[in-house]
């Protein structure tokens, strides 16, 4: 793992990975959208609104994955001072916030016709809303200090504390009564969803994942450039 701790080595590896992952993402989106919109059948109860699932569920998975990976990175930053860990968290946060917003709004757009309401304050919806605020809070906190190191430290602690929310989101549908349906893909006993709907879902989930990898690489490169700019400015201003 520490072999990748060197930013110069990371940049070389990123340059190698980026074109492949970008092309893969475009292909997966094309295939996934075709299957989701044209091939997959409508639900016998929900009609065509079931197609919202192909956006809503990948966005929700990515919202949780992004936060979990940021929390792991925060631990690496605090314990091992891994130089890329903080850069990863800062780069990933706006993407995670975007996924969470997408999940919340598409959920509303699905809830209105199927549940008869845009929003309820039940455990699943509320805990995802808290996840969205955690992303926003982290982004504000990291930039709130004059000394970027202190900002990153405070942000990492916030990420670790907020990690308790991730299992709460996952199991909220089992622990409390809710309008939201329980897990139907990642559950004991295998997926409870037919292949015609499962495949477009999995392909679009992979498309979201590869999109995330490509975009987070771009953002990490920007963050590394930003650090170099700050260092150059400091040396120039200090005349050292």
């Amino acid at each position: 793992m520490h072999r990748f701790a060197n930013p110069a080595r990371f940049l070389r590896l990123a340059a190698l990975v980026l074109p492949w992952v970008s092309v893969l993402s475009a292909l997966l989106f094309a295939a996934g959208l075709y299957l989701a919109l044209f091939v997959s059948p409508e639900d016998y109860q929900q009609g065509d609104t079931v197609r919202i699932m192909y956006v809503h569920v990948p966005a929700a998975w990515m919202a949780m994955f992004t936060y979990s990976s940021m929390a792991v990175a925060a631990a690496c930053a605090l314990v091992w001072r891994h130089p890329l860990a903080e850069i990863y968290s800062k780069a990933a946060a706006p993407l995670g916030a975007g996924f969470t917003l997408l999940c919340l709004v598409t959920g509303s757009l699905w809830g209105e016709p199927m549940w008869g309401t845009w929003w309820v304050w039940d455990a699943r919806l509320t805990s995802v809303l808290i996840l969205f605020f955690l992303y926003l809070g982290y982004m504000a906190l990291v930039d709130a200090f004059d000394d970027p190191q202190r900002g990153h430290r405070a942000g990492s602690i916030l990420l670790l504390v907020g990690a308790i929310n991730v299992p709460i989101i996952k199991f909220s549908v089992d622990w409390w009564n809710t309008l939201h349906q329980p897990a139907s893909v990642l559950r004991m006993g295998g997926p409870a969803i037919h292949g015609d709907m499962l495949w477009p879902l999995l392909i679009l989930a992979l498309a979201f994942k590869t999109y995330f990898v490509a975009t987070v690489i771009l953002r990490m490169r920007a963050e590394l450039a930003e650090r170099k700019i700050q260092t150059l400015r400091l040396t120039q201003a200090g005349g050292v």
Partner: peptide, 17 residues
């Protein structure tokens, strides 16, 4: 409902990119 979901996804993902 369906098209605003897909439209919003397009907006968020391309916007961030």
């Amino acid at each position: 409902y369906v098209w605003s979901s897909y439209g919003l996804a397009l907006l968020v993902l391309t916007g961030l990119l």
